[in-house]
Simulated assay, not measured.
Amino acid sequence: MTDLKMLNQDEVAELINVSRDQVAMLREVGIIRATKTGKCYIFSQQEIKSFQELYKGLDVSNKVKALESYKTVNGIN
């Protein structure tokens, strides 16, 4: 049942060892999908696991590199 627990942006940031702003950027680019609930975004644990698998070895350290990685993963030229 713990897989059903959704994570907020701060929890995701702590989990993947990045800043809250980095999580927001990954969400904006489309790398990590979220659900908006009022003013906040929540993330499924499965989404974080998918991010870890799909983007393993890629550079998502800034918006430009994250967009390049997103295109690579999704087969966009």
Rank of each mutant, 00 (worst) to 15 (best):
M1G: 12
M1P: 12
M1I: 12
M1D: 13
T2Y: 14
T2P: 13
D3H: 11
L4F: 15
K5I: 13
M6V: 11
L7K: 05
N8C: 13
N8A: 04
Q9E: 10
D10Q: 11
E11W: 08
E11L: 04
V12T: 00
V12Y: 03
V12C: 03
V12K: 04
E14M: 00
L15G: 06
L15D: 10
L15H: 01
L15T: 09
I16A: 07
I16L: 08
N17T: 03
N17Y: 00
V18A: 02
V18F: 01
S19F: 01
S19A: 05
R20C: 00
R20D: 04
R20E: 08
R20I: 00
D21G: 07
D21E: 04
D21P: 08
D21H: 00
Q22H: 12
Q22I: 04
Q22W: 07
Q22C: 11
V23Q: 07
A24F: 11
M25D: 02
L26R: 03
L26P: 11
R27L: 02
E28Y: 06
V29Q: 07
G30T: 09
G30R: 03
I31C: 06
I32H: 15
I32S: 10
I32K: 12
R33C: 10
T35D: 14
K36I: 10
G38E: 00
G38P: 02
K39G: 11
K39R: 15
K39E: 12
K39F: 14
C40S: 14
C40W: 08
Y41V: 06
Y41P: 04
I42F: 14
I42T: 15
F43N: 12
Q45L: 00
Q45K: 15
Q46K: 15
E47K: 12
E47F: 07
E47V: 05
I48V: 15
K49I: 01
S50Y: 05
S50C: 07
F51R: 07
F51M: 06
Q52R: 15
Q52K: 15
Q52V: 07
Q52P: 09
E53W: 10
E53G: 02
Y55S: 05
Y55L: 01
K56H: 02
G57P: 09
G57K: 06
G57R: 11
L58Q: 06
L58M: 09
D59V: 00
D59S: 11
D59T: 00
V60D: 05
V60R: 04
V60W: 03
V60M: 05
S61L: 07
N62Y: 10
V64L: 01
V64R: 14
K65R: 14
A66N: 00
A66I: 08
A66K: 02
L67H: 10
L67C: 09
E68Y: 04
E68Q: 09
E68T: 08
S69W: 05
Y70M: 08
Y70E: 04
Y70Q: 08
K71Y: 10
K71S: 08
K71N: 13
T72G: 02
V73F: 09
V73I: 15
V73S: 06
N74Y: 06
G75C: 11
G75M: 09
G75I: 01
G75P: 03
G75Q: 03
I76W: 01
N77S: 07
N77K: 03
N77P: 07
N77I: 03
